[in-house]
Design a protein around this nucleic acid. Structure first.
Lengths: 137, 137
DNA sequence: TCACATATGTAATAATATAACACTTAGAGG
DNA sequence: CCTCTAAGTGTTATATTATTACATATGTGA
């Protein structure tokens, strides 16, 4: 255990701003909006939108969170190794969001895009649904 | 041809604002942003964002155009009967957008969402790709 | 120690979208 | 023809979401 020190803790070390934004999303488990995150973290020292957006950008890049485009919100990633791929169901009635498991998607996605001259680099899939409980009531 | 007059031409008649916005998107064939549409149609008498957004909302509702959420843009629908479902490929390099044909999706989509207690009401699928020509160059 | 990439803090501003309100128009139905 | 109503219009103001620009700080690797 002597010569592996070269690639350091880069991968596990988030900066302070990245860490507190990630923690908030982690604890919430729900999609949150950037300015809500800002408000929530005022007491932790976040003062400007840019501090939030920068942290969010980085966390998205690392695949730790996802952006749900159609509601301008960010949510913790529940899969491992999504990279930047996202797939969610969003209940049209109650707004509840659930991430679709990676393993449920593998294969199926590329089948959807029949043109094999294209190379899919990532995807963003948003399924609007009636969730179980909204369907009943 | 006497007693069918009750449900009139409602379905084909767009208002002036809806018409000029639709025409612009039709002629362009590319995704356009709301404020670009506004600028382009100043000479036709559009003065405020709201006039554009109202027309866009209606056209989306009618299924004549789609919103591409991740780029805040609107594009003419190339399918018939998409309803509000959207599926696009977007080239990460050149930005070119193509709508995926309905018939390529049928069936496949619901397979992706394994939880059959959910009822999919509509979907928004955005596949980021390298398009043919960007892949070569 | 120096250099470099990355992150920070802050102010200003851009880009996207909606609220509120008064008024108009088109079509349904008597 | 008249009136009611739903839908659309025009306008001003404002809310929400996101980025530019710039000066400073910090960590890591040579």
């Amino acid at each position: 255990m002597s010569s592996t020190h070269t690639h350091s803790k880069k991968s596990q070390s988030l900066t302070k701003n990245q860490r507190i934004v990630l923690d908030l999303l982690q604890n919430s488990g729900e999609p949150l909006k950037a300015y809500f995150i800002l408000d929530s973290l005022k007491k932790e020292g976040l003062n400007s939108p840019l501090q939030v957006y920068r942290a969010l950008d980085k966390l998205v890049e690392l695949g730790k969170i996802h952006k749900i485009e159609s509601i301008n919100s960010f949510i913790i990633c529940n899969n491992s190794n999504c990279a930047k791929n996202t797939a969610f169901t969003i209940c049209e009635r109650c707004g509840k969001v659930k991430e679709i498991k990676n393993r449920d998607l593998t294969g199926g996605v590329s089948d959807l895009v029949k043109d094999n001259q294209l190379e899919i680099t990532r995807y963003n899939l948003e399924f609007y649904v009636l969730c179980k409980s909204c369907k009943i009531n």
